[in-house]
Design a protein around this nucleic acid. Structure first.
Lengths: 102, 102
DNA sequence: TGTATATGTCGAAATAATTGGTTATATAGT
DNA sequence: ACTATATAACCAATTATTTCGACATATACA
């Protein structure tokens, strides 16, 4: 029984766990599932197929970006987003390691 | 670009994604990290090392149980919880498959 | 430089989740 | 049967998140 975890959560876990916060919202899940493998989409395209306002989409994209789930790059006026496969895989594997589930 | 996902989320994904909702809360993460590999803890033990009230802990345990992250069994007066390793691993692997990140 | 377009940010209101006291149920021991 | 203990369920208050309009910034093009 690890009593320490009631007070402090290890830094390594904290970085990993942001993925869960990011993916724990249905709107953000919908955004993620909108991407086809390898595809890059700009904010306007995501807003277009979303039921949310532009600023709400922007908010969710920020959370996904800060969690490392999405990467982005500005190209001219537009900002393109894409799935950071490496980061997502690494986070999920790290969680499995941490919880010793493999 | 998958436009369908803006309206409906596939059932398969929905089941998987409950894990994220469950693990997206820091209190629930703390509870999970309290378990040592293979360990079973009853509610009283978890409350004892938690900063939350008994009813709050009970609530979080319910969410973790409904997401399939924890399993439980009543033994006498006590209810013991343990990590459902198989389920957690399966969910995380399914997410990786779904997002084609491997 | 002026205008149109794309996106981000801020703040207040709406919405949802969390919390803990209270009550209910079930079990074990006397 | 009665009492004590463990836990779950319910509900109201608090707290956190989400949402969207309005404003700000940055780029492209005439």
């Amino acid at each position: 029984m690890n009593r320490d975890y009631t007070k402090a959560i290890p830094a390594a876990w904290k970085n990993i766990s942001r993925v869960f916060t990011a993916l724990g919202d249905e709107h953000r899940q919908r955004i993620l599932l909108t991407f086809e493998p390898g595809e890059r989409l700009n904010v306007g395209q995501i807003v277009e197929v979303s039921t949310l306002s532009r600023s709400a989409v922007s908010h969710h994209l920020k959370i996904l970006r800060e969690a490392g789930v999405l990467e982005n790059e500005k190209v001219g006026k537009e900002v393109y987003f894409w799935l950071n496969k490496k980061q997502v895989r690494a986070s999920l594997v790290a969680v499995m390691d941490y919880l010793k589930v493999q």
